[in-house]
């Protein structure tokens, strides 16, 4: 077999292959250590990180739905200091880029996280989750409008020199407006989509199935929505896009790449098949060989319409 070039560059971040693991679905990578060689991954995005520890939502936090699942974890994490002392030493020793996914309840919190991550070793890039509620603005998500999304991006950009990825929420009227705004505010790349706000009802108890009432839908059910948004966004901006949403197989990943994504993230699939990301890398390689393509880059955005 000829060796294909799987490498891609995401706003300055060199990846040996275009497959990353999505935030919140891969823990801090150590959870998967005995299952496969983590260094084969294109990159690892760790669980959403806040300045202070966050307890998360009350259980039940997850429920299965047709071809998907809802989660309302509530961004549980031990906070930046605990991350640096307990998780980072292991991550530093990996030979694959580790990306920190950050969130805050105010713009200042985003800015401070960015400043602190700028100074530590072992984090190759940051991904900014703007899908969380803005406490000062009545709990409306930062990512819900172009102006606040831009402000968060600007604040992070000021304090962070490395590759800056902004993760977009699908719960908006026009995702391309948000994408343009974060591009203009200094983002090096965008990733999309985060989960779709959804809910499920237990008809026996007549109560919501999640303690938080609503949650985020992920898994195969959201893939067509995500592919559509990646394609539309690819028409609107000129920074790289990382596609996320319901990717279970190499075929799914290729759909995103053809539609305009330069890389992909594997999320819910890690729960179903912990080897999913590895099988997707192998599958993309096999597809390139079979199509006699030498580089995955030639596929990015090659959709013919």
């Amino acid at each position: 077999m000829t060796t294909c070039d799987l490498s891609v560059n995401i706003g300055g971040l060199e990846l040996k292959n275009p497959v990353l693991t999505a935030s919140g679905t891969f823990g801090y990578a150590k959870e998967f250590e005995t299952i496969f060689d983590l260094n084969r991954l294109g990159g690892i995005i760790v669980k959403g990180l806040s300045l202070m520890p966050s307890k998360g939502n009350a259980p039940p936090r997850i429920v299965e739905t047709s071809c998907g699942m809802l989660n309302a974890i509530g961004l549980e994490n031990a906070g930046l200091d605990a991350f640096i002392s307990d998780k980072l030493p292991f991550l530093k020793n990996l030979k694959t880029p580790v990306l920190a996914n950050i969130y805050g309840t105010g713009i200042e919190a985003y800015a401070e996280l960015a400043a602190r991550l700028n100074d530590i070793e072992g984090i190759s890039a940051i991904e900014v989750n703007i899908s969380c509620p803005n406490v000062k603005e009545g709990g409306i998500a930062f990512g819900a409008n172009a102006s606040t999304a831009g402000k968060v991006t600007e604040a992070v950009r000021k304090n962070y020199q490395g590759p800056l990825i902004v993760k977009l929420s699908p719960n908006v009227t026009d995702i391309t407006c948000i994408a343009k705004s974060v591009q203009d505010s200094g983002a090096d790349a965008v990733s999309l989509i985060n989960t779709i706000t959804a809910m499920a009802v237990d008809i026996h108890t007549r109560r919501p199935k999640l303690a938080n009432i609503t949650g985020g839908l992920s898994g195969p059910a959201i893939k067509p929505v995500a592919v559509r948004m990646v394609w539309q966004t690819a028409q609107a901006i000129n920074i790289p896009i990382i596609g996320v949403g319901g990717i279970m197989t190499a075929g799914d990943a290729l759909e995103f790449i053809i539609a305009g994504a330069s890389a992909v993230q594997v999320g819910t699939a890690n729960f179903v098949n912990p080897l999913a990301a590895i099988e997707i890398i192998e599958g993309i390689e096999a597809y390139l060989a079979q199509q006699s393509l030498t580089s995955v880059r030639s596929l990015i955005g090659c959709l013919q319409v």
């Binding site: 919140g24 998360g56 259980p59 936090r61």
Partner: peptide, 14 residues
Amino acid sequence: TMMACGIGACLGCA
């Protein structure tokens, strides 16, 4: 509890 991953990756089993 409900579980998605079983290995500490999803935090769904609080």
